[in-house]
Structure formats: structure tokens, C-alpha cells
Write a protein that binds this DNA or RNA. Structure first.
Lengths: 131, 131, 131, 131
DNA sequence: GTGGTCTAGACCACG
DNA sequence: GTGGTCTAGACCACC
């Protein structure tokens, strides 16, 4: 049972609304199995304190996740990852990176970069953070 | 010299405001040398028709570029790439991809993907579009 | 005299809290004489099992009914329909449908339906269930 | 083009959240053709003043309608009834009364009322308000 | 304890 | 002008 500090990172000034960032990040954590069916999300108030945002902002994100069937509201207990939210395989998870890849390709074209230059640089970047 | 159809791709529904998409894309094309000092941008009206966007939106983007010194408004002729807008070297251009790389790393972590899986997939994606 | 399965139908997902549904339904059954003074309500545990609801929820409803004088808590025996809970005449019972009628009228107006269409359809619906 | 006072009636104390009441009522008005594709809803601020509720409450309702495809947000102009929102025939509209009819039947049963009594009374009620 | 709703008022982004 | 987001703080309902 998961009930506390998730690996959530907000960019309050990114233009992307905070509640949207939360939705997308939590969805990814469900897809990857870091959050499993039956786990509980942190409570609205707790997460609001941790992330230093207004509880209503958290609530808005949770509401969206509920209305899309990703989590279920359990009266008096909190928000539980829905049963039908299943762990997806690696290929399916990679697929979720597609929108990013499209942007990457477009920006590389406009910067006049070639494939090799880009990949070397990306490899360097990823090595610092991922294993 | 350059006065017509640029390689601009808009995502009207992406949340990213259209005029902002234009600014960033044109800046990248200047940085990469696809647009050179002295070249003219397409006219507001022409670009508005091409991209099926309100002329005000184009105008707003051009105004932004002018106020940041990237282009100069030449009365009666249009918007010209400014003299001081210099072609940057490859390293500097790659640096412009950094924000994207940060998002990429974060999404990979949340999707539970490792470096190798991600790079193989990205290589595949880039090969289809870049040379 | 009456001690078991009442004609209670719950809509757990209806927004209307469960304990409130219980209260209103039991009150109507008292008003109509389907539950008479001296009858006993099903035990909290029994009803909880039948309706697949948390016993606390039943208990809350019973507590409410007691505090409003509709039933009396008889130690060691259960909840008994109170003496002063009287059978109301038909007109009074129909009056209890008024809130529903108001909603019905409003929804018909917004759906652009006229009186005749609505009544024909309601007649059809009622015929299937009532005698 | 519709841009002002709709026939909306709120029951602030009904338990049913205000934004939900708005959603359901507007949906019904679309179904009945009182709001047609291309019409604009009143602006958030205008409706907030008319109904004496907080603009955010209106905005919440509009957001839901948009996310369900009933209306489209037109930048700088407001919320427009979506093209695919079609006028439904009478039978389909009557069908939307079904949830109400089920509650009606249940309450009549529990009040020990018969079909004839109920219909006479409903006829009387409807005559006063509908034509 | 849990989430849900609402208010009042502020600021932002877009056209 | 339009809608969107966020805050701070209040109150409610359910368990």
C-alpha cells in the first residue's frame, strides 16, 4: 500500500497548469507500475503541503483522474488506483513518449542538427539521470 | 531572399499558444542558419493564410521577435532578419534542446524506463526523420 | 411483527448518501402504513448484510429516525416504530411527492416537452410497476 | 445567435452541487433544441452575475461541458454549442426523464399509492406549469 | 480522518 | 472582451 511521497516534480512557471502536470505524472506512474491497483494516492491535504500548492489544485487533478477512471474515490479513505488501471508493458510505455519525440524531431530540424549530433548529446544527458 | 513558406508546424490544440510556437520555431531557424540576416519573413497576411491562423496572431509573434531584436521591421518591405542575429555553433544549438531533455528524463523516470530502452527507441524515431 | 426484508432499494452511486436514502424510504413506508406502530425494523446487522452496506451507515440512519421520533430504541429488542408515527391520508402522502413534481416540471420545460407527451409516457411507466 | 439569459433555475441548497445543476440543465436545453449548434452560452462573468454565484462555479460547469464535447471554447469569443450536439427527437428526450421516473415509482410504492391516484395528481401539477 | 464545493479576489493568456 | 488558473480560507458530508 502506497500512501505517501510520490516522485512528483512541479514546474509552477512552465505554463503547463499545475493540475495538468499532476494528472500526467500520476498517469505515467500508473502505467509504469510505480503505482498499482489498490494503492492509495497521498491525501489531498498531505500532497498540498508537500508540493506547496493549494489543496484545491490537488483536488482538481484528483477529480480529473477519477472522472477518467484512473482512480476511485473511497469514502473516508481517499483515492485508490482503480482496478482496471493496469501496468503497461515497455513498448506501450515508450509509446507514451511519442508526443515528446515529435517535438524533439521538429526542434532538431529547425536547429539544423543531424541525427548523430543529437543522439550523442541525448545519451550524455540520459546517462547522468537514468540507469 | 527568403520570403515564403517556412517549415513551420503548428499544433493549435497543444495548449502552447500559437504565437509562442511561432516565436520559438522562427528563433530556432535563425539559430541554425536556415534563416539568415537579411532574409525576409513571410508577410503577416501570407503566413496567416498558409497556417490558417488569425493575422493578429502572426503579428503578435512578429512584434515579439522585433522587440527582442531578432528581426527588424522595414517600412514598406516587411520583417527582416536582424544583422546581429548570428548563426550559433552546434554546441550552442544543442544547448537549446536542454529544456526538452529535462522533460524527457522526468517522463522516463515516471514511466520506469531505463537509458538503453529509451535510446534505442529514440534512435529509431530520429532515423525516420533526420539524416 | 415486521422484522425482516423491507422493500428497500439503494443507489450507492447516486450522490444521495446511503443513510439518507434509508431514512427517506423508511419514513415513506411508515406514512403509507407499510410499517405500523409496534413493528420492528430489521436489526442493524441484518440489514447491513442484506443491503451490503457498512453497519455504521444503517446505524446512522436509525439514529436519525430515533432522534426525530419516528422509531424508539427498545433495549435488547431493536428499533420499534413509534406510537406517534401515524398513518397519513392519501392527500398528505401525495403531498410528499411535491419536490419530485417540481423537478419533473423543470426538466420537462428544459427538454421542450409538453404536458400531453409527458403524461402519456409517465402513464406507460407507472403501469408497468404500480397497480 | 443566443448569448444571454437562459431559463436556468438553481437550487443552491438542494445538495446537488450548483455546477452539476448547470451542466444537466444546459445539456437538456441542447437536447431540446433551445440551444443550437453555433449558439453561444452566456459568458462566465455574465452568468455569474445573473445567477449570483461565483464565476469559478460557472467556469467549472463550462469546463465539464467542454471536456464532454457538448460545447467548444472559442478563443476570445466564448463557449459555443458544438456542431455534433444535435437536437434529439421527442422520444429520446422523454428517455432522459427515466431516472426521475424510477424514483417516482419507488416513492409511490413506499407511500402505498396506486397508479390512478398518482396520475391524477401529476396531471394537476403539470397543468399548472406546462402547456 | 477523507474528498467536495463554494467564495472572493487576483493574475494570466488570448484576440 | 473572453476563459483559465491559482490562492486562502471556509463549510459540508461521509466514514
Amino acid at each position: 500500500m502506497q500512501h505517501s511521497s510520490l516522485l512528483l516534480q512541479l514546474s509552477p512557471s512552465s505554463g503547463e497548469p499545475i493540475y495538468r502536470q499532476l494528472i500526467e505524472q500520476i498517469k505515467r506512474m500508473i502505467a509504469s507500475g510505480q503505482l498499482n491497483a489498490g494503492d492509495y494516492l497521498p491525501s489531498v491535504r498531505q500532497l498540498a503541503v508537500e508540493l506547496e500548492v493549494n489543496p484545491m489544485t490537488i483536488s482538481k487533478a484528483y477529480g480529473f483522474l477519477e472522472s477518467h477512471g484512473d482512480v476511485s474515490r473511497i469514502r473516508g479513505k481517499g483515492m485508490m488506483i482503480a482496478e482496471l488501471a493496469h501496468e503497461e508493458n515497455v513498448a506501450a510505455r515508450l509509446q507514451k513518449l511519442s508526443p515528446l519525440a515529435e517535438i524533439l524531431v521538429q526542434q532538431c530540424q529547425q536547429l539544423g542538427l543531424n541525427k548523430q549530433q543529437t543522439l550523442e548529446w541525448l545519451t550524455h544527458k540520459l546517462e547522468k539521470e537514468l540507469k
